[in-house]
Design a protein around this nucleic acid. Sequence first.
DNA 1: AGGTCGAGCTTTGCATGCAATGTATGCAAG
DNA 2: CTTGCATACATTGCATGCAAAGCTCGACCT
Lengths: 213, 213
Amino acid sequence: MQTDVACSRLRELILDGVYPPGARLTEMEAAATLEMSRTPVREALRMLAADGLVRPAGRGVVVVALEEADLNEAYQVRAALEALTAELAAARQREGRIAPADLRTLHDVATRTATATAEGRLADAVRLNRRFHRTIAELAGNTMALQALERIWDQIQVSTLHSLMPPSRPAHVSGQHDELLAVITDGRHEAAAAIARAHVLDTRSTAHKEEHR
Amino acid sequence: MQTDVACSRLRELILDGVYPPGARLTEMEAAATLEMSRTPVREALRMLAADGLVRPAGRGVVVVALEEADLNEAYQVRAALEALTAELAAARQREGRIAPADLRTLHDVATRTATATAEGRLADAVRLNRRFHRTIAELAGNTMALQALERIWDQIQVSTLHSLMPPSRPAHVSGQHDELLAVITDGRHEAAAAIARAHVLDTRSTAHKEEHR
DNA sequence: AGGTCGAGCTTTGCATGCAATGTATGCAAG
DNA sequence: CTTGCATACATTGCATGCAAAGCTCGACCT
């Protein structure tokens, strides 16, 4: 149905930065762009608003623009949730409830992320990095946590896309990914939680510092 | 605007169990009940769906009915998030960034929760209990976390409302609340995180056991 | 020249109409 | 008696129309 089409296309446009944070967006304009009537666009905008990607602002909606403080909050939530998913994934691994193929996939994604980062393919790196974290969340087998994380990731992505820059220490990031991968593979759930949390918070503070130079 | 009216009224009806989990709900019927046209109702239903309170199911929507497994997942997420909010609240308290009046409010809510529970006023107890946890989340000063928690709480409430029964050990619950209150008041953030997490998970396993007798 | 009030246009919110789709029911055949 | 099919109906999805609410811009007054 057209509503879903509108929703996913608008989401893409926003996540790709075509509509940057703070951009105003009227339903008529969006309807014209997507070549459909206002009704499905309207519903799509409401869904995106519920997902926190846009915010009603007087006339029409604006793409969310998280301030630094909001980003800090978002990262705290993300850290808490990713600590959970990493812990659960490790616990499932310990109980032998994770298929070796899935684990290999995760390993593969980690490798490709590191390669893309090292080669400076920034867009790919971002996408793969997110995929790495999402794969872990999927291995955790907790749908609620995955959904909550998708929302947070979306919001963070929108508000940081404009200031993308290569990580200062690429090896550092992939080192952390490898560590995480290792403890999950070993089923050490407590360590997984701690490392995941630290990794997320480290990402934030590094990006944050970069920002202010 | 009518959309928001529809949204909050429907949310209330669902959270109060008027539309129990699994209930089918057509937009025409809801429109008739709320005495407005289908359009705002339609949008309201989509918002509720985005919040995870209803789920599109063929024709119309059904109120979510979390299975036991889903509830376990929900409680894991809730525990992770409440550990975060408790930790943040305690940290803010330590830094003297929480107004004494707010802390007294929290104390007051805890007391009233205990009273309502002890006196068997079940509906009040549930409402106050949720308020207690929400107040802590508010003290944490993290909007994202609060929003994520509201969603989880809503979903849990819907699916557990039908099986409400007095806690087996009322003193046990209010004891945990008091502990949490104490460590937050003392600004011991690590302890706050641990106690909050344990309390949430304890709530789950107790309710879960009750369920199966 | 600057501020304030007003008119017009843009845009939204809601209702309703129409077409399409999925479902249930009843009937007939095996 | 059960199963399969066809028909009719309930219900949704989308478009469009209409009224109300804001903004913008301009003109007039101070």
